[in-house]
Design a protein around this nucleic acid. Structure first.
Lengths: 197, 197
DNA sequence: CGGGTTATTGATGTTCCGTCAATACGGATC
DNA sequence: GATCCGTATTGACGGAACATCAATAACCCG
């Protein structure tokens, strides 16, 4: 296997490396994720990784962007018209399912909020991803243009959801039912107050 | 200044280095905070920094622990007995004042949640700090032993507060007043529902 | 089947962290 | 105030990891 090369189309090779990098960055944190580990897993040299992605930070950004893009559909909340309580209840289930199913990925993304260390580029990427989720939630809730207040409330609610998921999944201090009840009440209170205006 | 040494009591020197490290880690993120920068600012050699704190990660943990310990008093909410609405209103002001005054420190600590990259030790330290804040809030709210449900609600509320502060201070998408109103309503809803049981 | 394009390599330079024996500062002792 | 000893401090070194670059060889094309 040494001395023989396999030459691929740039797009294919790039995708290979990106996939390898995704695995490595999800498994280890930034500092402990070595370029050589990525290269080995992709079956190439470190030089090639740098050739395609430039620096380690840029590779990391590519991974975060890739995963973040898939985030809004993870918590897809495309539902038919229903009474608000029912709508929120179903959305909440999907939300928590997504947390439960993609713990590692989400913990990497959320952990990377300040992530690589409050990198502005990472912040920008994650901000857009969160906006994507908020937009989907808002769309279901109010068909037309959502108000800025609603968007803010939904974004803040996400912070609550993250904290709740942490207590539930990482620290084991709350059951899924408790978390679900608490978050449902909270969300209803937040958007409910809003429409009284 | 070169060739001449100044020999200090270990405690004093250790404190010097820790202070220097605090500055460096608050100003730069983990990857860009060099041991040499810490050493230079403390007026010593990198060898000595390692001598006192072992590795860079351990130095970082010492800084985080130091700052995290000061966190609960930052948002100290020791207030006289007041009607619940008034109590929450005042606590919220202090909370937001703390955010406004200590942006850099808080952004480092919150960014370090997964921070150095989901380091379990960092998570433990930050968990304790958050528990400290929750305990203070709960103490004001209910003099006797607070229920687990209240603690969970307060912890989750912190997540909402963090998100709100981010939208307000880092992204400039909301005014302080908006955030204050939203968070106040949210907190009241969360703990209000709780007592109906 | 040869020739050229370029994907890929491997060696090399650089930076930074961590270690360790050697050193010299400062209090103790007389 | 001179000397001695414990240890705080240094400076040099080894190693790990990222990044660069000229050299190489695999694949496509005529």
């Amino acid at each position: 296997m040494s001395g023989t090369r396999t030459r691929l189309a740039p797009g294919v090779r790039r995708e290979q490396i990106l996939a390898a990098a995704r695995d490595v960055f999800v498994a280890n944190d930034y500092a402990n994720a070595s370029m050589e580990a990525v290269a080995r897993r992709a079956g190439v040299t470190t030089g090639l990784v740098n050739h395609y992605f430039g620096t380690k930070r840029e590779l990391y950004l590519a991974v975060v962007e890739d995963l973040a893009a898939s985030l809004p559909e993870m918590v897809d909340t495309n539902l038919p018209d229903l009474p608000i309580e029912e709508l929120v209840a179903r959305n909440m289930k999907r939300f928590l399912d997504a947390f439960e199913d993609n713990q590692e990925i989400l913990s990497m993304l959320l952990g990377s909020e300040g992530g690589l260390g409050r990198d502005p580029e990472v912040a920008r990427i994650m901000g857009r991803a969160r906006d994507g989720i908020v937009a989907r939630m808002a769309y279901n809730h109010a068909g037309e243009d959502p108000s800025p207040e609603l968007l803010l409330a939904l974004r803040v609610f996400q912070g609550a959801a993250d904290a709740a998921a942490t207590e539930w999944l990482r620290r084991g201090r709350a059951s899924r039912d408790e978390v679900e009840r608490l978050l449902t009440r909270t969300l209803l209170a937040m958007v409910g107050e809003l429409s009284k205006r």
